[in-house]
Amino acid sequence: MLGAHVLAVVCTGAAAGLGVWQYDAWQATRAAEAVDLTQGDPVPLLDVMGPDDPFPGDQVGQPVSFAGTWVPQGTVFVSGREHDGRDGFWVVTPLTTGGPDDPAVPVVRGWTDVPADAPPAPRGTGEVQAILQPSEGTGAFDEDPLDDVFPQLRIADQVQRIDADLFSAYAVLDTAAAGTNTGADGLAVASVEQLPAPGQFTALRNLLYAVEWWFFGAFALFIWWRFVTEEAESHAPQESNFASIS
């Protein structure tokens, strides 16, 4: 009987603890995904990711620095971007991470309301400090795939426009380094999403595990309660028999 009580307490405690562990993991993963890195110190781009690496999910908004050669013929405009409440375009020019043929990162140089008014793209070498962002994938439809205007900044779209290899990331010029950054002349500042909202399904698995564990904990308690009450019932008649005999 004592063994049953101990077993019930251990099972319930273990299940509740495992549930809390999964619940914490759920919250921690979501918090990590939403952390604001943009105010941190810049690090060399290649310390964060290589040209063939997938985007490191915990590095959204990390300021990075790199230097290379501008690829002016790869300049594109990304529609649907706001600045001071006005709809306009991001102006994007790839910058390689070394010589002209090295892998490049599309750099958002700034914002303009009319693509035709944008200043000519920079040429030659450049050095920037910029906020690292993952390739977009909003599923937006490009009404005219042949022009220089895109509805989203998707690396797969940009790869087809230039000869250079591209990182699976883009970068937005960091206003904290406006004095040293090149390429932003004549353009308004492009604002960057600083805090990516954690996705609805982020770490959902952990939350579902937590619910599972708590269910099993509750069920262990239930079985224990049934066991105890049934034991009590099966003993009750015997006790009354003893009482009648004595």
């Binding site: 698995r205 579902l208 595990y209 599972e212 269910f215 099993f216 069920f219 079985i223």
Partner: peptide, 16 residues
Amino acid sequence: WLIHGWIFMVYVVVAF
């Protein structure tokens, strides 16, 4: 694993 866990919950109730 997750799917196993949730179906196992149903199993536990039915078995009980």
